[in-house]
Amino acid sequence: MKKAILKLETLACPSCMQKIENALKGLKGIEKDTVKVLFNSSKAKTVFDSEKISIDAIEKAIEDLGYPVIKSTVKDA
């Protein structure tokens, strides 16, 4: 299990959070309960299974929604 912290471009609307949250929860290999989107600090945090999904795929899912990922860090959870 790995923990990902993704720094996003400034989030401006609270419904963006809901979108990103739902998008991440819909991915395979993501621990659903750990998905957290921080509105004010414009970050997304989640724990994921690195054998089922890569950090690149997670980034892509968010960028496909129209929210550029500035930086992502992965740590052992």
Binding site: S15, Q18, N22
Partner: peptide, 15 residues
């Protein structure tokens, strides 16, 4: 576009 993306992840947003 934003509305479509929202609907895709099952969110009915303001958009």
């Amino acid at each position: 576009i934003q509305a479509y993306q929202a609907l895709k992840v099952k969110v009915i947003s303001i958009d």
